[in-house]
Design a protein around this nucleic acid. Structure first.
Lengths: 119, 119
DNA sequence: AATAGTGGTTACAAAATGGTAACTAATGGG
DNA sequence: CCCATTAGTTACCATTTTGTAACCACTATT
């Protein structure tokens, strides 16, 4: 009589979604790209305290998962533009509703800690 | 000329939401409680490979964040029932749409890895 | 007196994630 | 020949997260 397992495709898909977007930086990066493409340098500026290394890693993973598109121009100095793919854009309303959920569920004081993190 | 910062309340709230649900076990636990309360032992059984220690930690954090309710009965052997709070229930449609997003965006092969994890 | 059952706790270890600082490649301009 | 610019890479380290195994408290049952 072994341990029961999850074979629920909904739970499985949810786990997958979390693997794709559920970490410290990815939802922020996706949100930043909501209004169009941005260059590496801009993403670095707009994402406070992220390092080049970690930004590169996160962008690579998002690209692998088909969330963003990386367009490299053959210029010197280099120019690279990141934008949301169709999959990525489909995520926006969901991220918006998550954001809204926080705003509906917690008052200012309760998530003050978050404000500090992002200042 | 310092680095720019995020003061967007939407991004901030999204970060908060991810702090609350964006890890390996929490979305699964919330999903498991979608259809009513479950005892500690059942949650342990239905969440493959989670350890008692980690399950306890996750449940405590979800309780602190107001997502679940812990009801302890004064019985021997002990009985503890976990259920979703109002905040927790409000999360369900969002988790469902995340799950749906995966199912719309990735084919079976692409998230086969996830199936293996949950078997 | 020993054991089972439930919901934990504890000390410890391993793995995953995130961070720092220095370095690189390629080219135009002074 | 040196410097600036951009988008990285590299080696190394710190922190956070997750996991393992043993133990505990309380009572009923054998």
């Amino acid at each position: 009589m072994g341990r029961k397992v999850i074979d629920n495709p909904n739970v499985c898909s949810l786990v997958h979604a979390m693997n794709v977007i559920g970490n410290k930086w990815k939802p922020i990066l996706i949100y930043l790209l909501a209004n169009g493409s941005l260059r590496f340098g801009k993403l670095l500026m707009f994402t406070p305290t992220i390092s080049k290394k970690v930004l590169t890693e996160q962008l690579r993973e998002l690209e692998e998962d088909g969330i963003i598109i990386r367009k490299k121009y053959a210029e010197i100095p280099p120019r690279v533009e990141y934008s949301l793919s169709k999959k990525g854009k489909a995520l926006l309303p969901i991220l918006k509703s998550l954001s809204q959920w926080t705003q509906d569920s917690y008052n200012e004081i309760e998530f003050e800690a978050c404000r500090i993190v992002t200042l």
